[in-house]
Amino acid sequence: MNEYLKLFNLFTDIEINDFLKLSQTILLKKGDLYINNNEICDSIAFVKSGIFRSYYYSNNDDEITYCFTFPNKLLMAYSSFISQKKSEENIQALTDAEIISIPKATLENLAKSNSNWLRFLKIIAEKEYVELEKWIFNHQKDKAQQRYLDLITTQPEYIKEIPLHYIASYLGVTQRHLSRIRANITY
């Protein structure tokens, strides 16, 4: 988390240490939920270790995985975090995980007392928007095979830990179609 915050070039070491004192380390077991749908996301977390999936339920009550979160990334149900309304998504640990969490209220108090934290929140909002737009474009223009290649290229060390049915859901294909995609790829 310390190194992650330094990447923003906004904070002094003292500000980062103060932030870390206000945060809490949470250990999650494989299968645990960080956020459950119909709960309000009232904190933001940094993934120190582990893999998470974000999913929602379709009108047919099928689980639809739409996002994976890997180490050294932020984790939250962003719409719920911003609006403070109940989340429509679930965020589940796919492996044992360790996160560093800070309550929204604490982060907002930091932003009131130090404009660097306000800039940090602005940058996070911009990054979330860019990621959402990228996801939409990729899911509309790229075929499932290309999205799978992107996933195994950007996260080769973690992809093996994600059950195939979650990857198939993320790609919007059946497990059978995913098997055909994997068979056509030479590693």
Rank of each mutant, 00 (worst) to 15 (best):
S79V: 06
S179Y: 00
Y66R: 08
K127P: 08
F19L: 06
D32Q: 02
I181L: 01
G31H: 05
N36F: 09
I100G: 06
F8C: 04
I185N: 06
N59F: 13
P156R: 06
E131N: 14
E89T: 07
Q84Y: 05
S113K: 15
L5E: 04
K85Y: 08
Y34K: 01
Q155A: 10
N138S: 13
D13G: 07
R182T: 03
L164M: 09
L107V: 07
I124M: 13
G50F: 02
L151D: 06
K29F: 03
M76H: 10
H139W: 02
D142V: 01
I44F: 10
I44R: 08
Y166V: 01
F81D: 01
L74A: 05
Y187T: 10
N114Q: 05
S58M: 02
K6W: 08
P156V: 05
S80T: 05
I44H: 08
G31V: 00
F68Y: 02
L22P: 10
A45Y: 03
T174G: 00
I159G: 07
Q155V: 04
C67F: 14
I35T: 08
F68P: 04
L10G: 10
V173W: 01
T25H: 05
T174Q: 00
I14W: 11
K21C: 11
K122W: 15
A93K: 00
I14M: 13
I64G: 09
K6I: 06
T153V: 07
L107P: 11
F68C: 04
A111K: 02
K73E: 11
Y166C: 09
G172T: 02
A125D: 08
N116E: 15
K21R: 12
L164Y: 04
N109L: 14
T106D: 10
S179M: 01
Q84R: 13
Y56S: 08
D18V: 06
V130E: 12
N2M: 14
W135G: 09
N2A: 13
T186Q: 14
T174Y: 00
D32M: 00
A105N: 12
Q92W: 02
A144C: 10
H165E: 11
S169K: 00
N17C: 07
F19M: 00
E98Y: 05
W117T: 12
K29E: 12
G172L: 03
T174W: 03
Y4L: 11
L164E: 12
R119C: 11
D150C: 03
Y170D: 02
N9G: 10
L107N: 11
Y56V: 04
I167Y: 05
Y78Q: 13
W135C: 09
R182E: 04
D62F: 09
A97G: 04
S58G: 06
E3A: 09
E126T: 12
K21W: 06
I14F: 14
L110K: 07
E131Y: 15
A111G: 06
I26W: 00
K122Y: 15
T154P: 02
K127N: 14
E63G: 07
D42R: 07
Y55K: 04
M1D: 13
E133P: 06
D142S: 12
Q140N: 15
R147P: 09
K160D: 12
N109M: 14
A93V: 01
N2K: 14
Y187R: 11
A125C: 07
L118F: 14
I181K: 01
Q24G: 07
T95S: 10
E15C: 07
E157A: 15
S101E: 13
N109Y: 13
E128F: 15
L132G: 11
L10I: 05
W117A: 15
I159N: 05
I99A: 04
I185C: 05
S58C: 02
Y187P: 11
